[in-house]
Structure formats: C-alpha cells, structure tokens
C-alpha cells in the first residue's frame, strides 16, 4: 500500500492506493492520528485508488472518524467502487460522509456544505 499526503489550504488530504489490509493498519492509524491531532479539523481520506480493503482497515477508518468527532472536525471519504461496496455491505455509510471525487470533496469542505 502506498500512502501519500498533501494539503489544500487548510484541508489535510491523505491518499491511499493498492491493498489496504491489516499489515498496513499501524502505519495508517499513526498517520491519521497525528493528522487529526495537529490538523485543522478538515480531513479527506482518498481511497479512490484502493483495490482491496479488509475489516482491520475499516476499523482504522472508524477510529479516525471517532477521533475527528472528539475534535468536532469533519472527515470525508472518497471511495473506489470496491471500497464503496464494502462500506455499504457493513453499513458504514450511515456514519461516514462519502463524496465521489476528490475535487468535489475539497469543494464541499471549502464551502463547508
């Protein structure tokens, strides 16, 4: 799995690609934790290039969601069809804000819609 970070104004963006599985979770969890702790409270997790995701990886996303809630920030997911179908299967769409593309996610966070 490849992890890439960028910033757009005050929005933190973390882009993941490839297989996101249990072995990757410590690294991603740490990165997300520090981004949420030090960031502005606006975070996009871009999973558009993720080809596979397992339950441990979903648990990392849930932890990030909970941490962001504590900070009263906003977390947005950008998903690939594979990730989207798993999120729907596990009913996580009822807690995550999911936007289809990165530009639209940035737009949503900038306008705070």
């Amino acid at each position: 799995m490849i992890l890439h970070e960028q910033q757009h104004n005050d929005i933190d963006i973390i882009e993941l690609s490839g297989r996101f599985i249990m072995a990757d979770t410590p690294e991603v969890r740490n990165r997300l934790n520090s981004l949420i702790k030090e960031g502005s409270g606006k975070l996009i997790i871009d999973l558009e290039k993720v080809t596979f995701i397992d339950s441990s990886a979903c648990a990392v996303l849930i932890s990030a969601f909970k941490n962001m809630q504590i900070k009263s920030g906003r977390l947005v997911l950008v998903t690939s069809p594979v990730v989207q179908s798993l999120i729907e299967l596990t009913r996580l769409h009822t807690i995550f804000e999911i936007i289809p593309t990165l530009p639209r996610a940035i737009e949503a966070l900038e306008s705070n819609k």
Partner: peptide
Amino acid sequence: GPTQLNLPADANDDEKLMSDSFYAAN
C-alpha cells in the same frame, strides 16, 4: 471464526466488531 483466528488477542474493539460484521454480512 475470522475474529478468533485472524486477529491478535490484543486487537481493539472496533477491529473485532468490524471483523464480525464482515463475517455477518457474508
């Protein structure tokens, strides 16, 4: 099951819950 066999004993509660949710869905 998947949680008992695949996750370490010290896995956090969210990981265990998600693993069981994956199992429940399939």
